[in-house]
Design a protein around this nucleic acid. Structure first.
Lengths: 234, 234
DNA sequence: CGATTAGTTGATCGAGGTCAACAGAGGTGG
DNA sequence: CCACCTCTGTTGACCTCGATCAACTAATCG
């Protein structure tokens, strides 16, 4: 699900979500500029823009979507606080997707020229390397897991992932404000919006979840976890 | 499909497969050790082994598979010549999956300690960064594309990808020797082996493809490309 | 040369995508 | 402030795609 993400997590267990510890990206913050704020539905970078730096999310939430030449759009990332935006742009020096705020957000820029130019920044480079390596690996396993999940498990996994991220950030892990629309969730999980809707109402009926607008309450973490483990291919 | 791969490709077009040019990894070859050869079905690294370096494939083909705690295995990569093995291991200094040869292969090791220790190797670091960034990005788009493809398009895409890789390597792009089994292809594409079999025989009947054992001949590149564009979610 | 694995094909069934109809929720202008 | 409109979300009916089970054949390997 979440490929290019912060590096906080280490990969001891399959589905491990780890305590914040000290974010590896923290080293970069030396180079960071002051925070700035963007209103809801603002565009941070456009697909194809020349790469000028990484962004770290301070608060709020953003989405990244990729437009294909056939016109179809695919939503590839949700960025939460402490996430790094733009790691996928380093390679070809071009932002690979359009990043938009889905609620008022505060970010800071890390100009990449500084990283490129700095002479003896092996430590930072190694951290970036590790960050990217983790991102690549996690993103991959995540998506492959989704591929082998039935849609119910996909939704459950998504909610649990969000829950764990919120906990990492110090919020409650049971009460979530998810500012994205159900359609965006559907697109992100590669399913029809109707299916998402059906699954969510079904989870509510089974007493595992409770939803009110954009407020989600995971009533039964244990049960949700069990559902998220379900896999295709007996 | 192929996440942690060689860096030859640049991302000008969505589905771009590029001429070899000078592989970005080439810079690393200064650090490389002599080639060594592994027989068919040999294990290169085991899942969980401590990371000791990257490998570059010289000839042959390898597969990488991940064992989950529930016992299920997922085949995540096929490595072809010039591909880099181990990029996903940098982050946590542990190989994330078991890499096995599926035919006799020749590789060389790039001990990572050298990269880590070298004092002023900014150029190499930047190349690695770009390599990883590309890998992360491509892997991600690839898998998301698969997610939104019907199974027929998945198989077509897979064959075309292989075809393009072979062309990059200077081989014919129409006649392919794919040493992996159909079951492995099925696992790689997250579908049932029967479905792969059915789709392949159907492609043959339609005169797009011709298969004999592990020899695949793409009769109609154009037609295959059209099929590979098919997408779920009208 | 038997034995085990890989591959093919048919029949069946269920998950989930599609179409359609409708209910709210914002958002905008008069 | 209300009427209006559009966009999001929900629910039902339907049907297709692809997984599963089963039976059989072809390879591969000791």
């Amino acid at each position: 699900m979440d490929v290019l993400r912060k590096v906080v997590k280490q990969p001891q267990q399959e589905e491990a979500f780890h305590s914040p510890s000290l974010s590896e990206v923290e080293a970069l913050s030396i180079l960071s500029q002051p925070f700035f704020t963007l209103r809801k539905k603002s565009i941070l970078v456009n697909q194809g823009d020349p790469f000028h730096g990484l962004y770290i999310v301070h608060c709020g939430m953003l989405k990244q979507s990729h437009q294909h030449k056939d016109g179809t759009k695919l939503l590839t990332h949700f960025y939460l606080p402490r996430d790094v935006i733009g790691l996928d742009a380093i390679g070809d020096r071009t932002y690979t997707g359009t990043v938009t705020t889905i609620e008022t957000s505060s970010l800071c820029l890390i100009p990449f020229s500084q990283i490129e130019d700095l002479p003896t920044t092996d430590a930072i480079h190694m951290q970036l390397l590790r960050c990217l390596s983790n991102a690549a690996h996690y993103g991959h396993t995540r998506l492959r897991k989704i591929l082998s999940q039935p849609s119910e498990a996909r939704v459950a996994s998504f909610l649990l992932t969000m829950s764990h991220k919120y906990r990492e950030l110090g919020y409650s892990s049971n009460f979530l404000r998810l500012p994205m629309s159900k359609q965006e969730i559907a697109n992100y999980l590669c399913m029809a919006p109707e299916t998402v809707s059906r699954i969510i109402s079904q989870l509510q009926q089974r007493g595992l979840l409770s939803v009110n607008g954009h407020e989600y309450c995971i009533v039964n973490q244990e049960g949700m976890a069990r559902i998220s483990e379900h896999t295709k291919y007996a």
